[in-house]
Design a binder for these strands. Sequence first.
DNA 1: ATTAGCACTCCACACCACAGAGTGCTAATC
DNA 2: GATTAGCACTCTGTGGTGTGGAGTGCTAAT
Lengths: 395, 395
Amino acid sequence: MELPDRKMRILKAVVRNYLETGEPVGSRTISKLTDLKLSSATIRNEMADLEEMGLITQPHTSAGRIPTDAGYRLYVDDMLSSEKEELQSAKKEMLDMKDLLLKKQDRLENMLQSVAKTLAVSTNYASMISSPTTRSSKIKFIQLSQVDPRNVLAVIVIEGNLIRNKVIPVEEELSAETMLKLNMLLNTNLCGLSVEEITLGLIEGIKRNAGIHTAIVNNVIDAAAEIVRSEEELKIYTSGANNIFKYPELADHQRASEIISDFEEKQALGSIVQETLAGEGQNGIQVYIGNEMPVAGMRDCSVVTATYELGEGMKGTIGIIGPKRMDYDKVVGVLKEIMSQLDAIYKPSGTASLEDKGDGAAASSGQEGGTKGGQVFTIPELRIPQIKRIEIKEL
Amino acid sequence: MELPDRKMRILKAVVRNYLETGEPVGSRTISKLTDLKLSSATIRNEMADLEEMGLITQPHTSAGRIPTDAGYRLYVDDMLSSEKEELQSAKKEMLDMKDLLLKKQDRLENMLQSVAKTLAVSTNYASMISSPTTRSSKIKFIQLSQVDPRNVLAVIVIEGNLIRNKVIPVEEELSAETMLKLNMLLNTNLCGLSVEEITLGLIEGIKRNAGIHTAIVNNVIDAAAEIVRSEEELKIYTSGANNIFKYPELADHQRASEIISDFEEKQALGSIVQETLAGEGQNGIQVYIGNEMPVAGMRDCSVVTATYELGEGMKGTIGIIGPKRMDYDKVVGVLKEIMSQLDAIYKPSGTASLEDKGDGAAASSGQEGGTKGGQVFTIPELRIPQIKRIEIKEL
DNA sequence: ATTAGCACTCCACACCACAGAGTGCTAATC
DNA sequence: GATTAGCACTCTGTGGTGTGGAGTGCTAAT
């Protein structure tokens, strides 16, 4: 949609003013606010036009105007395409973020959670972040070992060094040779295959060769299938849901309850992740406004999403969820900043930025993987914090 | 505190009526409600006494009475000690719970989450449940294996069959003999020890014997330490936080925001778990009312907690959080019911109750650990769903 | 094309009145 | 002495009314 320059400027003024105040904005306000020197009457005429175009609306006859979803959309599109978001304010607020990311977040889970929290605190909106997805991976290594007379431990490593294990109960103790044979059998037959490639025929073949130990083979394959299943499972971390109470238009019982509930059942937010990963927006930033929200029950909100990447095709989604009148400029700035910081942490070149942060104690020999003091805290772990959660079941 | 019978009955009537309606209750209502035939005037006199004792209060001069914290406390104590909670209503509502627990909750995490949800749905209050704590355990088994030329996989099994693994990067590929030697070294020196028992001297000794592979030894020990650390970490699952909006006294912005925030930062709820595990109440049920709440910011709530046990000393806490005027009778009933169901699931004797639930398809041969259809669903797994989360880090 | 002026609309807020619920107190009754 | 009926009083919640202010649309003047 093309808009005459003057109308566009008035629209922007209306949106911006409404973002700040949350109150309908009148012609007089605009007339005083903008640099184009026009009287309120002229503005009124223009605003009448804008209303006719469906970009702004008035809550009641004699009130000022507020943007419609379409109005927000135009505003946001313009902002995103004109590329010159004022990052400076965002950057200043995010300075401590680097510290935060450096604190021994030795687990991905904790790191994501604390990123979410930082985002929520620094924006005053609610935030969500999804765990990075991995492509369906191939089996790399299988190891069975006898833990005790009644149990065999199966360890399965898949590409990208994700590991899962499972304890399998057995009736009788297996001999060392049997274990060795089973290990060879499984490794030669299954390594290099993705779980989808494991056919029933293949399993039958293995079982035949395994002789009496079909139960174990079954269990190993089950465990392998489970790895993939649970890797595909989307984990979503959230923070700052209570921020919605800061915005009266979201804080009434009805709406708040729905939003809180969606935040609790995090899978409701999954659709946002899906949408985001599906349609790649410009700069990786996407904005869903009001009815564009993929989550029903959040139709009074907007969400700004970004895609982050931890290398090796592990992509995740970050989202900031707030009222439709959220400060899009700031949020986009914050998201871009955090994306770049996540990138920096992953990239090996991040070493420099890590070292100039060093607090003397870091000089505990250049030995890779060394411990310092009693703390499990190794520099390389920090630089590439690729940690997966895995689960085991035991009987 | 001993109370004359008549006063006690009036107090109970006030509390019960207020629980239902949420409105201050007047003398006339009581007079009609109770079986003791007294006029409203008499009730008024008694109520004045009760107010003097600090058990009830009136929001303003000419309103009915509502219970104070002390009043609730007396009511709850009486209920808990008189032991005859009407479980029948609870039981009826919980019939489907068994189904829920049976649905392939093959992971503890999922099971806990769904228990929380069921509780929230069936009570209309918010619920929380903590993962069971384990005592610090001994190392049972250690296994190193070469996954690929650059990485060694360390698997550590501790008592109770909790497993953790860690990928350790190495400079050069290790020979099969070296691996074998390291495995023997680690197993002979560390098995049977709890992590606390591993002294620096011991580590030094192992390192000496390990020759050049001190880095690997270090990492294995780190991993072992990490197991214990993360097992100690309290995981709390919540559900139904949005239920608080159903109770106007909690639903105003101020309070709701605080409560929601505490539910989001789940560790705030940790203090409830601590309190509960510390002071063992009668029947394992404990009630914290208003200012007794361990969590600041929930001083307008009450919580009913229970301790559940999954055998082997793995104890966890369940809590139902609602307004002070929550239906204590029902909640206590529901909690008792779920506790007994959790017990039944854990106990081997649970077999019976599982089998009479069988839906025909369960007849896929008595083979232990068998799969049925494409589903990973083994009966023994269900019966003893002792599943731990473990994490690995990779480099 | 822009602006000043004006009549009009609608909301927010304060004010008031009043019905209703409930109390405390006193005097009468069992 | 305990209970009850009766009554005056208090406080809240609600609905009605009035008014000031903000903002609009329209018309006429610039």
